[in-house]
Structures are given as structure tokens and as C-alpha cells.
Simulated assay, not measured.
Amino acid sequence: MGPTATGKTALAVETAKAINGEVISVDSALIYQDMNIGTAKPSEEEKQGIPHYLIDIISPQEQYSVADFVHDTNQCITDILGRKRVPILTGGTMMYFNALHHGISNIPEADKSVRQKIQIQIEHLGLSKMHERLQAVDPQSAAKIHPNDPQRITRALEVFESTAKPLSYWQAQKTDALPFDFVNFSIVPQNRSELHLRIEKRFEQMLEQGLLAEVKHLLNKYCLDADTPSMRSVGYRQVLQYFNDELSFEQMKERSVIATRQLAKRQLTWLNAWSDAHVLYMNNPSNLEEILQKVCVSTP
């Protein structure tokens, strides 16, 4: 597990080569076909012949839930273990990792019409009033959701209006975690500024590699807009705003880098709360040896 741009893929491939492993992607953006540059999707050369799963499995206009991920991952792990190989789960989508370890809440699917109605109400009444409404119907969720978080306020109210039950009720209805023993490693930077520089450099490389052309291709090939989950991915959202004349080119670059840094910060917050993770430091050449030693100690 680790923030974006910390070298997880390369380390996973080296680990897989050393312990007869195969890689399962734990990344909510790598699932999409034709989204290669902006997701930093590993090339065949980077995979070095190691099988990778849960990459390129749906089109960018399709939906993919946490429940879908848990189901697919369960099948992948079972298949890999059945062939006497080692599953190596690698990525930065902490919500996915959390679901594997602790189960998932049976929250109903999104209702687009209800969501649109709530978004209109937010525009007319303001976020503060809508957060007050959430406090009245679901005080538990309101206590956890910041008054300036439109996405989570909208989702919580949408669930309540669609089901007549608060989001906190559904979150308490959890399925079981997967029946496997996980050995957890978190790859983190020793210096945040180093990670920030890597993020900025990588986005510049994405632009040089043709990110704008990739997004144009996606818009021509698929039925996509700003509300499509795939287009809410960091980088793609900002390029879409640039194409819609909502941002200048320089603003698009700046906001993409800022959004990626914010994503990395959220990922690190998750990791800091992960009590049983072995911490590895980014750019440390001894990481592989450390992993192999701890895997051998942890495996019966």
C-alpha cells in the first residue's frame, strides 16, 4: 500500500519475481480501459512478464463498486493460491484495502435522479443549510462529514432520501472480511517534499506522453461527462475542465498537481492509522529484502 508516485508497481514486480507471485491491482483508476497515461498504468515492459489482474476490466463509462472489487479480488486470490503462487495486492486505493480487511457496508447503489435533485438544492440553499438538514436526519454521518464537503453531503442525503434510512444505518450493515491472512506493507516517503516533487515531475511527463490526446480520445469514443466516475479521477477531471474552458492550461496543470498532492495526503492519513503495516521508505534499496524477510516470518 502507498501514496501515488512512491514506486509500488516496481517493488511489487521485484517481489513477485522473488517469491513466485502474481500481482492484483488495488487501484480504482487502473480498472478502466483506454485510460493509460493519466493513471500511470504499468506497461508490458514494466510488468516484466508478471501476471497482473484487475487492470483494463471495464470501459470508462461503466460503474464499478467496492463490492465488485471485493468479489473480483476474492476470485483472483483463490485462483492464484490454487496454482501454488503468491497473490501480491498492490495499489493506493485505501478504501479497497479497508474493504478486504474489514468487510464492506451494504450501502444501496447511487440514484442519479435523487442526486441531481440534491445538487440543485445545494446550489439554491447552500452547503451549510444542506449540512443542517443532514444533521436532522442523520446526526452520526453529519458529525463525520465536514460542512464544506459537497460530495459526501450529497451522498448521505441521497441515501436517506432513496431508502428512508440514514447512511449510518447502512454503514453498520457490514459483510465479512475476506478469509485470508494478509501481510501488510506501506511504502511512504521519508520527506514529503520529495514526494511532492515526484508528483509534479510525473504529471509533466504525463502531459509530454500525450495526456490531452488521451482524454480527447476517451471523449470521442465513450459517452462521458464530469459526473462519470472515471472522469472524476485526478488529472482527468482537470483536463476535462480545461477542455470545457473552465480552466486555462496553466491552471489545469497547477490544479492537477495540487489534487494529486491532496490525494497522497489522504492516502498517508489512511496508512498512518493502519496498525499492523510494516513501514517501508520510498527509494530504499533494501525494501525488497525487508519484504522477503517479513513475508517468510509471517507465513507458516
Rank of each mutant, 00 (worst) to 15 (best):
N98F: 07
Q116M: 14
N148Y: 15
L127C: 06
H278Q: 11
L30V: 11
V234S: 07
S162H: 04
K201L: 00
T9M: 08
S256W: 11
D227S: 14
E290L: 13
D56A: 06
A110Q: 11
M282I: 10
E109W: 01
Q61R: 06
V23C: 04
K112A: 15
G82H: 09
Q205R: 14
E158G: 03
P179K: 03
S233P: 01
A29S: 13
V257E: 04
A213N: 12
C223P: 00
E289C: 00
A29Y: 10
I122Y: 09
S59Y: 13
N284A: 05
R83I: 10
V279H: 09
V66S: 10
A143F: 08
N106Y: 13
S43R: 09
Q140E: 09
V183G: 00
S248V: 07
L157D: 06
H102G: 07
I187Y: 02
T9L: 03
H124V: 13
V70D: 02
V183L: 07
K117R: 13
G38N: 01
G235N: 03
I122Q: 05
P42I: 12
S59E: 12
I291Y: 02
M1H: 11
C296S: 14
K253M: 15
N98H: 12
I258G: 03
D276G: 03
G126M: 09
R266F: 14
R202Q: 04
Q171C: 11
S256E: 04
V188P: 00
A277Y: 10
Y242A: 04
I145L: 08
K117M: 12
I107G: 03
W274E: 15
V86K: 08
I37R: 02
S256R: 03
Y53L: 00
I50P: 01
V86H: 07
I187F: 05
E254K: 15
D34P: 01
L263E: 06
V234H: 07
L157N: 06
L288N: 02
N148F: 15
F249Y: 15
S59Q: 14
V86W: 07
P147I: 14
E158I: 05
K112M: 12
M130Y: 13
